[in-house]
Amino acid sequence: MLSSQLRSPQGGDWLAGVSSDAALRQLLHGLPGVDQVGVHARAAALATRSIKKEAKLAALDLAVTMVDLTTLEGADTPGKVRSLCAKAMRPDPADAAVPPVAAVCVYPDLVAAAKAELGRGTVAVASVATAFPSGRASLKVKLADVADAVDAGADEIDMVIDRGAFLAGRYGQVCEEIRAVKEACGPAHLKVILETAELATLDNVVRASWLAMLAGADFIKTSTGKVSPAATPPVALVMLAAVRDFEQASGRLVGVKVAGGIRTAKDAIRYLVLVNETAGRTWLAPGLFRIGASSLLNDLLRQRGKQLSGRYQGQDYFTLD
């Protein structure tokens, strides 16, 4: 049913004919409801899966390549961003076998500093924009924010949706904003932050996911990291199911980024299990799954060291930022 609604002959504009609030409401509220208890039970069951030895080592390395190494603080400086970039390119100075992370995520005014440090390497520069984290600014300001980051060289833009408009049912407005930002991004990839902690229900998470994907998001992202609870396994499971269903309906692959509160390698591996079991193997790649984090990288390195040496590692042996 969904695929017939969505598939357009040109394969291009998914929103042809569905841009009004009413039409979007009909589409989004027509999505199957989420069994909340079932989702929590499924996420909890998958969290108990045991990943050991070679599989664990492979999972740790994969998780490293999926990290968006993030610093989003008022106290950020170009110096801090430079050291973060050095860490992103070579996470463990003592071991060249550790792969570089996927991207460095900073505020727009620090994109230039990050870009200069990363040069032409494989690590991308992601920038939050659109009046992050609240998103409470006019569209004009948001677009200027995005243009600023893109001009400075950002490869990926993390935008926030207007949660107020979404919760009030003004889906058309949210949709238009995402499309406008997508246009302003140009070649840069667009990640749309749903801020699931403010969406209240898993049904809303599914609707916001579909809305963002319909409007052209390349990635949907759980949280800003500024609101608690940030990423949780049930929310990630629902979003992963949404991108899977969207791919089946439209043929377009959309990625998922979990962000906020993921600090341990154990958590990261649990998310990888969720990805594999919900969306499928295709999504087990940095192009389609990301983990936004800052302290996670050190724990991944510690566990990697444990796997290789057999000794538990201390935090004194890894750089702080």
């Binding site: 057999g310 000794r311 538990y312 590692q313 201390g314 935090q315 004194d316 042996y317």
Partner: peptide, 9 residues
Amino acid sequence: AVLAGHFDV
């Protein structure tokens, strides 16, 4: 043995 070998001790 585990504690003696642990790098965070």
